[in-house]
C-alpha cells in the first residue's frame, strides 16, 4: 500500500507544475516544470511497485526527452514569449469544457467503481520485466526496434538540408574576398577590447569610433544593439580620470 503522504506529495509535484502548461508564458519555464512532473511520475512508479519503470522514466523523460525539448527551444529562440490571448472564437471555452468535462467524467467514473486491490502483487524489478519482454512480448520488442530506427532515420531526413552548391574551400573564400575588394581579413569582432566585451556592442576603431559592421546583422534587426555613442561619450568625457581608461 502506498503511503497517503507520499501520494499527496506526488500529486502536488505533478499537478501544480503541470498547470504551468496552461498558464506560464515562457516555454523554458514550462519545460522545466514538466521535468518536475516527470520526476514526480517516476516517484509514483516506484511507489506502485514499478522501480524499473521509475528509473526508465527518469532516464528517458527527464534525461532525454525533456532535454531534447530544451535543445529545440534553444534552437527556435528561447526568448520567445507567448501571448496567452486567445485568437480562435470560443476556443478557450471549448477547451475548458471539453478537457474539464473529460477529467471530471473520468474521475467520477473511477470513483464510482470499486476494484479489489491485490495485496501482494508482482514487483516490477528488471529481471521479471526482462523475462516478460523477451519471452511474451518479444515480437513487440522487435517491432518497436523498427519503429525507433524508422523514427531516427525520419528525423534525419526531416532535418537534413540538402547542399545546393559545392562546398567552398578556404582558399576559394579568400580569393573571392580579394577579388571583390572587400576586407581581406576577418571582420571586426564586436565588443570593446580590453574594457568591455559583449556581442551587442560595436567594436571601436583606433580613432575611437564604433564600427557598425562588427555587430551581428541579426541583432540589428532585432533592435538588440547597444549604441556605441554612449561608450564614446564615456571615452571622451574629460571629467573622467585618466586612470579609468
Amino acid at each position: 500500500m502506498v503511503s497517503p503522504i507520499l501520494f499527496w506529495i506526488i500529486a502536488a509535484i505533478t499537478v501544480i507544475p503541470a498547470l504551468s502548461l496552461l498558464f506560464a508564458r515562457k516555454a523554458v519555464h514550462i519545460a522545466m516544470s514538466i521535468v518536475l512532473v516527470m520526476v514526480g511520475l517516476a516517484a509514483a512508479y516506484v511507489a506502485l511497485d514499478a522501480p524499473f519503470l521509475g528509473v526508465v522514466q527518469i532516464v528517458v523523460y527527464t534525461g532525454a526527452v525533456m532535454m531534447l525539448f530544451l535543445f529545440v527551444l534553444m534552437l527556435v529562440g528561447v526568448d520567445q514569449r507567448e501571448d496567452l490571448k486567445e485568437t480562435i472564437t470560443a476556443q478557450r471555452w471549448i477547451a475548458f469544457f471539453a478537457a474539464g468535462g473529460l477529467g471530471a467524467f473520468l474521475v467520477s467514473l473511477i470513483t464510482r467503481v470499486s476494484i479489489p486491490v491485490a495485496e501482494e502483487g508482482a514487483v516490477g524489478d528488471p529481471e521479471p520485466i526482462a523475462i516478460l519482454l523477451f519471452e511474451k512480448y518479444v515480437l513487440v520488442i522487435e517491432v518497436l526496434g523498427f519503429v525507433l530506427i524508422t523514427a531516427a532515420v525520419g528525423a534525419l531526413v526531416l532535418t537534413h538540408v540538402p547542399r545546393l552548391k559545392p562546398r567552398r574551400t578556404q582558399v576559394e573564400v579568400q580569393r573571392d574576398r580579394v577579388r571583390t575588394g572587400s576586407d581581406p581579413v576577418n571582420k571586426v569582432f564586436p565588443g570593446v577590447y580590453a574594457r568591455h566585451n559583449a556581442l551587442d556592442i560595436p567594436a571601436l576603431d583606433p580613432e575611437g569610433k564604433p564600427i557598425e559592421a562588427s555587430v551581428s546583422r541579426v541583432l540589428k534587426i532585432r533592435n538588440q544593439v547597444q549604441d556605441g555613442a554612449e561608450f564614446r561619450a564615456q571615452l571622451e568625457d574629460p571629467s573622467r580620470k585618466e586612470d579609468d581608461r
Partner: peptide, 15 residues
C-alpha cells in the same frame, strides 16, 4: 485550417 480547432473537435468526439 486551425489545427487547434481540429484538436478540439477530436477531443469532443473522444468524450
Amino acid at each position: 485550417g486551425q489545427v487547434r480547432s481540429y484538436a478540439a473537435t477530436m477531443l469532443v468526439g473522444l468524450v
